[in-house]
Design a protein around this nucleic acid. Structure first.
Length: 458
RNA sequence: GGUCCCUUCGUCUAUCGGUUAGGACAUGUGGUUUUCAUCCAUAAAAGAGGGGUUCGAUUCCCCUAGGGACCGCCA
């Protein structure tokens, strides 16, 4: 096996897995699998305030749900802090970084001044060549002050930037802990990362991190910055949209297969192909197919894709997804009902876009409420129903065919359309107008239950 | 404000200088149907604007407009 390619997905455990993060993870994983490489998971937990163990677990579980499994145990960044600090010291000793004794107040003043003059702010670099003094200090990297840097991005192409716009960024805080720019660079090096595939929001950071690599004489990985995902309105996805995290989609009963397929096709394409199995994704994925512009999330497309998956899914497997879904997000269904649902699962999954739809479709089996018959059903219909109730009273529990016959006789005798009979009966039996066909309802419920429900009214 | 990036139907996208600009979702219409849905058929729908380059530009270049990202001792 050729392990020459190593990528990583590096979320910070400060919240549940973001939908954009899931896509980044997917692209990394696919790229690694396609190239017989390794995909690693690095938990960037150096922000002690905001990092939570529960989120770390949740992210790992969610990735697992999406079947995006890292090739090694998750790597926790906080465990490597000593090494990051070592590098910072090395950078000081080789003249690429320096101690900065400026206080917050001083920096505030600098910023204030710039604001007044309407100038863009970058740190003045005034500690750069100053004698060391005493007190609390941060360590800053000596960033290039003039000229232009270029990044050959695998997705975005050539990106040039004015070096003067990047300040001497902090690599070690006042409490001697490393910042993101340092930790990420050091870990990418230590983990032998060959390709950094991450969100577009990190693009400018790359110019900082590459400089650390250069100063340390390390081999620089290749970078691919993928465009961000926006909300329908074209804005940044916020928690309020209810569509920002993977969990939001789990809640409404989206299958991991369809979410993964959707994410794959969002910002990436292969000809006109829409449906990709996991194997096909691995086989066909490439960085060249990633578009340059940000894309908007389209819930209708997710739903439609999910519907397609539900239709074509192995029924037994789908049922096991369904029971897990109920278990995680809904009230428990009694065993007898669950069994009825299982036997007639095809009926319920038929009209469903989501697992939640399936749940709602079969709700009448386990959660029946008596309807307001006076207002919902007129007198003629009531007579029909009562006639029907009477005629089936002698029918045995397994004689479904006889019920069919009874119905046919009634509509024939009364010279009515099937619809005129079916709709009130559907309402009585299920409590709703939108339910399966009459036969399916009766089969699902069983004749005993059917009679029982009718007997509530007649 | 500065730096950088992006721009094909409403949405995701195909096209890698010559196409009736294709597909999918959503939408409209018609049909099938035992409600609803499915399903089938069909329609409408796009190259932001302006300059170049070229025999020819959606495609290459420039400008404008619009959108986005970043500008922390967060990651």
């Amino acid at each position: 096996m050729n392990n020459s390619i190593i990528v990583r997905f590096a979320p910070s455990p400060t919240g549940p897995l973001h939908i954009g993060g899931a896509r980044t993870a997917l692209f990394n994983w696919l790229f690694a699998k396609k190239n017989n490489g390794l995909c690693l998971l690095r938990i960037e937990d150096t922000d002690k305030e905001r990092s939570k163990k529960e989120y770390e677990n949740q992210i790992i579980e969610t990735l697992n749900w999406l079947e995006i499994n890292p090739d090694k145990e998750p790597f926790k960044q906080s465990l490597n802090i000593n090494k990051h600090v070592e590098v910072a010291n090395k950078l000081i000793s080789n003249g690429n970084a320096y101690k900065c004794f400026c206080t917050h107040e001083e920096l505030e003043k600098e910023k204030e001044l710039c604001r007044k003059k309407n100038l863009p702010y970058v740190y003045s670099r005034k500690c750069r060549d100053k004698e060391e003094s005493s007190g609390i200090f941060v360590v800053r990297f000596k960033s290039k002050a003039t000229g232009i840097s270029q990044l050959d991005d695998l997705v975005q192409g050539k990106i040039q930037i004015l070096n003067s716009t990047i300040e001497d960024f902090v690599i070690l805080r006042g409490d001697a802990t490393p910042t993101y720019q340092l930790s990420a660079s050091v870990d990418d090096h230590l983990m032998n990362i060959t390709h950094v595939i991450r969100g577009d929001d990190h693009k400018i950071n790359t110019f900082k991190q590459v400089q650390i690599f250069e100063a340390m004489g390390w081999h620089i990985p290749k970078y691919a910055h993928i465009p961000l995902i926006h909300s329908r309105e074209g804005k940044k996805l916020s928690k309020r949209d209810g569509t920002a995290t993977v969990e939001d989609y789990q809640k409404i009963g989206i299958l991991s297969e369809s979410l993964r397929n959707y994410l794959l096709r969002l910002g990436w394409s292969y000809k006109d192909k829409e449906i990709f199995s996991l194997e096909e994704s691995i086989q066909l994925f490439n960085l060249e197919g990633i578009g340059k512009s940000p894309s908007k999330l389209d819930i209708d497309r997710i739903l439609s894709l999910n519907e397609t998956y539900i239709k074509n899914f192995n029924e037994l497997k789908l049922f096991s997804y369904f029971t897990k879904y109920i278990n995680d997000f809904k009230n428990k269904i009694d065993e007898d009902s669950l069994n009825k649902i299982k036997i007639n699962f095809g009926v319920f999954k038929n009209k469903a876009k989501t697992l939640e739809d399936i749940y709602n479709n079969c709700k009448f089996v386990f959660d029946y409420k008596k309807i307001d018959i006076e207002n919902l059903i007129n007198k003629d219909e009531k007579n029909l129903m009562s006639l029907f109730a009477e005629k089936i009273s002698q029918i045995q529990y397994n004689e479904h065919d006889k019920i069919k016959q009874v119905i046919e006789v009634i509509i024939d005798e009364k010279k009515i359309k099937y619809k005129d009979f079916g709709q009130p009966l559907r309402l009585i039996l299920t409590g709703t107008k939108f339910a399966p066909s009459i036969n399916e309802i009766i089969v699902c419920l069983g004749i005993v239950e059917t009679k029982k429900r009718l007997s509530l009214y007649f």
